[in-house]
């Protein structure tokens, strides 16, 4: 999934990029509205994070222009002024959500995931990602969620990719290289620490006992494996 981030503050732009990449999104960055429109045409992103107050062409204009071509493309507005957000809603520019500055990582993730769910649901008629079972955990890729005994666990896009891969290759060892290629993509520099950390974080959320993992098992010196015992 490709996200276009348009924001004039360099640090915020790069920070958002990092957060989203970490989540498993591809990103393209624009520092003003003009560039955003440019990149929108060239890169065909799946959704947009759009700062309102940008020099030159502002967020409203970008949104309005894009809506002419694509009335459904999810757009999340970013602004420091809640008045601006009121304006966005008042004008029915078709914002899918908004993030008020100053925001934290958790809030960004919650909003981005919500938009991604909607975006996947929108494309559902083309290719439906089917739910699957891993041990006693039901993974719902289309909803970026997993369920166990009625409890819902939020997942990132990358988490879902990892689980899908392990499930597809169930019974086999998935080595780090493959995991990287499939779930991080080629533009990432492979770094085993990143991967191990991500897996350890993921285990904390999806395993009953992260010390005794039943879904993502470590195969020492090789990689990871999921064993479907009930099948």
């Amino acid at each position: 999934m490709k996200v276009l981030i348009a924001e004039d503050d360099r640090n915020i732009r790069l920070g958002l990029e990092e957060i989203l990449r970490e989540e498993g999104y591809q990103t393209v960055l624009a520092e003003d509205g003009r560039e955003a429109l440019d990149l929108y045409r060239r890169e065909a992103p799946d959704f947009l994070c759009l700062d309102i107050m940008m020099p030159g062409v502002n967020g409203y204009d970008v949104c309005r222009e894009i809506r002419r071509h694509d009335p459904d493309l999810p757009i999340v507005f970013i602004s420091a002024k809640s008045e601006e957000i009121d304006r966005v809603l008042g004008l029915e520019l078709g914002a899918d959500d908004f993030i008020l500055k100053p925001f934290g990582v958790r809030e960004v993730l919650a909003r981005i995931r919500a938009v991604t769910r909607r975006s996947i649901a929108r494309q559902r008629h083309t290719e439906a990602p089917r739910p699957f079972q891993m041990d006693d955990l039901e993974v719902l890729p289309g909803e970026l969620r997993a369920k166990r005994e009625g409890q819902t666990i939020d997942l990132s896009l990358r988490d879902v990719k990892i689980l899908e891969l392990l499930h597809r290759k169930r019974g086999q060892v998935v080595d780090r290289g493959l995991l990287f290629d499939e779930c991080w993509g080629l533009d990432h520099i492979p770094n085993s620490r990143t991967l191990d950390q991500h897996v350890s974080q993921l285990r904390k959320r999806i395993e009953r006992d992260p010390k005794e993992p039943r879904i993502i098992r470590t195969v020492h010196g090789a990689g990871y494996r999921f064993e479907q015992e009930t099948e």
Binding site: D9, N11, I12, G15, L16, I19, A80, K101, P102, F103, G104, V105, V108
Partner: peptide, 10 residues
């Protein structure tokens, strides 16, 4: 808000 966003986010 912009610097604060950066401090908090990073």
């Amino acid at each position: 808000k912009t610097p604060l966003t950066n401090i908090r986010m990073y």
